[in-house]
Simulated scan of single mutants.
Amino acid sequence: MFICTGNICRSPTAHVLLMHKARAAGFDVEVDSAAISNEECGNPPDPRSVAEARRRGIEMHAHCARQVRKSDFDRFELIIGMTAQHCAALRRLAPASTAGKIHLFTEYADGIEGDVPDPWYGGQKDFVEVFDLIDQGVDGLLARLQADAGATSAPARPPRR
C-alpha cells in the first residue's frame, strides 16, 4: 500500500504503476493507496498525474482518494510512505505489531535517497520528474517482491550425499 498526503498524486501513481508492471510480468500482487490527510477524500487523481500516465501509455484506474485506515495495517504486508513525514505519521497510527511494515518509498529506488517530492504545487515538469522517480522505485519494489516470492515458493532441495 502506497501512502502520500492527499492520495491524488504520488500514491495513486505508484499504485497504478505497480499494478501495470506486475500484470505485464505475470506477477499477482494486491495494491492500494491512501492518504495521511482527509482533505482530498473522495477526489479523483490529479489531472496532471493522469495526463503523465496516459502520455506513457498507462491508464489510471477509477480512483477515489481515501484516508489510511487502521485495518490497512493488518491487510497489507508493506505500507510505503512517500516521505519520512508520512512514515512518521504512519508509525503513530500503526498498531505496535505492524510498525515493521512501514517503509520509505525511496528504499526501493536504487541511488535515490530521501523523499518523493510533492508535485501538486508545481507544474507538469514536476509531475514528469516525480513519475520518473516513482517508476524507478516501483521497478525496485517489484524486483524485491518477485525475489521474495521466489524464495518462499522455491521447492526444497534434496539433501546432498
Rank of each mutant, 00 (worst) to 15 (best):
F2N: 03
T5W: 04
H15N: 14
L18W: 03
H20Y: 05
K21F: 11
A25M: 01
G26H: 09
V29I: 05
V31Y: 12
A35C: 06
I36F: 04
S37G: 13
N38Q: 10
E40C: 10
N43G: 04
P45F: 05
S49A: 15
R54V: 02
E59P: 03
A62K: 13
C64P: 03
A65Q: 10
A65M: 11
Q67K: 10
R69Y: 12
S71V: 14
F76Y: 14
E77N: 12
E77T: 12
M82N: 05
T83D: 11
A84P: 00
A84S: 12
A88I: 10
A89L: 05
R91Y: 06
A94W: 06
A94L: 08
A94R: 01
P95M: 09
A96S: 15
S97H: 13
A99D: 10
K101R: 11
H103A: 15
E107V: 08
A109H: 13
D110T: 14
E113P: 03
K125Y: 08
K125C: 00
F127H: 08
E129S: 15
V130C: 12
D132F: 02
D132C: 04
L133M: 12
I134Q: 08
D135M: 04
G137P: 00
G140K: 03
L141N: 05
L142M: 06
L145R: 01
L145E: 03
A147Y: 00
A149L: 00
A151K: 04
T152M: 04
T152L: 01
A156E: 00
R160T: 02
R161W: 06
R161A: 03
